[in-house]
Design a protein around this nucleic acid. Sequence first.
DNA 1: CTCGTGACTCCCG
DNA 2: TCGGGAGCCACGA
Length: 109
Amino acid sequence: MVQSFTIKVKDILRRIPPGKVTTYGLVAAAAGDYRGARQVARILHSSSEKDKLPWHRVVNREGKISICSPEWNQIQRNLLEKEGIIFSKNDKIDFQKFLWNPAAVLFDV
DNA sequence: CTCGTGACTCCCG
DNA sequence: TCGGGAGCCACGA
């Protein structure tokens, strides 16, 4: 049963455990399209508020926040720090400790 | 229905 | 090593 890309992405986002982060590309790849990173971002931006998705746990491939709005960028960082995620001096997240692999729960449904 | 844009990523020069 | 360009799909108007 293959669900829509959007549904998968939302589903994956809801399964991100606290204190962990993932990347757009990872989620997209887990949803079936490694090139759908933009759609993941689009979905997040579009449905995060209405679907209560943990958008703040999603960062770019560098482990940094890619949001265009500086204020939301700050909010996301604040939320992540509250969950125990630590940012490096370069505002990067240590993937060795906080990276969560969406593919791990993909087939758990 | 069609067009435009986007919180990304990868490949090539 | 670093920079720029292209690709992809979904959602909103």
